Simulated assay, not measured.
Amino acid sequence: MNNPPATYQVNGAAIRATRKRRGLGIRETAEAAGISRSYLQRLETGIREQMRPPTFAALRTALHADHHELLVPHEET
Score class of each variant (00 low, 15 high):
67 H>Q: 10
52 R>Q: 14
31 E>Y: 04
47 I>V: 12
55 T>Q: 06
6 A>W: 05
62 A>W: 08
18 T>G: 01
27 R>N: 06
63 L>T: 02
10 V>Y: 00
73 P>S: 04
41 Q>G: 12
69 E>C: 03
56 F>H: 03
75 E>Y: 11
54 P>E: 15
30 A>M: 02
65 A>E: 10
41 Q>T: 11
59 L>A: 02
4 P>D: 13
14 A>K: 00
60 R>P: 01
68 H>E: 15
28 E>F: 03
15 I>C: 00
16 R>S: 04
7 T>G: 06
36 S>I: 05
64 H>V: 12
65 A>I: 10
70 L>C: 03
46 G>A: 09
29 T>Y: 05
44 E>S: 01
49 E>Y: 04
60 R>E: 08
38 S>M: 10
41 Q>E: 08
66 D>I: 11
43 L>V: 13
35 I>R: 11
68 H>W: 09
16 R>P: 00
37 R>T: 07
63 L>F: 03
75 E>Q: 13
12 G>V: 00
35 I>L: 09
72 V>K: 11
70 L>T: 02
15 I>M: 00
44 E>D: 07
33 A>E: 05
43 L>G: 02
63 L>I: 04
24 L>D: 06
77 T>W: 08
54 P>S: 13
41 Q>C: 05
8 Y>V: 01
24 L>A: 08
60 R>Q: 13
34 G>T: 06
1 M>L: 08
57 A>P: 02
72 V>L: 12
11 N>V: 02
13 A>M: 11
60 R>S: 07
6 A>Q: 13
26 I>N: 01
42 R>H: 11
34 G>Y: 08
77 T>A: 14
39 Y>S: 10
37 R>I: 04
20 K>M: 12
1 M>Q: 07
13 A>E: 15
20 K>Q: 15
4 P>S: 14
20 K>F: 06
6 A>G: 04
53 P>G: 09
44 E>N: 02
57 A>Y: 05
27 R>T: 08
40 L>G: 00
4 P>A: 12
50 Q>E: 10
35 I>C: 08
48 R>M: 03
14 A>L: 00
38 S>Q: 15
61 T>E: 14
31 E>S: 07
55 T>S: 09
17 A>G: 00
35 I>Y: 07
26 I>W: 01
1 M>V: 09
3 N>K: 08
37 R>L: 03
65 A>G: 08
27 R>M: 04
34 G>N: 07
52 R>C: 04
14 A>G: 01
32 A>D: 04
72 V>I: 10
36 S>D: 10
45 T>N: 15
75 E>V: 12
27 R>G: 01
10 V>M: 00
56 F>E: 01
41 Q>Y: 14
29 T>Q: 10
22 R>D: 06
1 M>W: 05
10 V>H: 00
49 E>R: 15
28 E>Q: 14
23 G>W: 11
37 R>K: 09
14 A>T: 00
4 P>Q: 14
28 E>I: 05
71 L>A: 08
49 E>Q: 14
11 N>D: 15
56 F>I: 03
65 A>K: 08
35 I>N: 07
73 P>A: 05
1 M>G: 13
60 R>C: 14
7 T>P: 03
20 K>C: 06
24 L>F: 11
36 S>E: 12
55 T>P: 02
26 I>S: 01
36 S>T: 15
34 G>L: 06
49 E>P: 01
60 R>F: 03
20 K>A: 09
46 G>M: 05
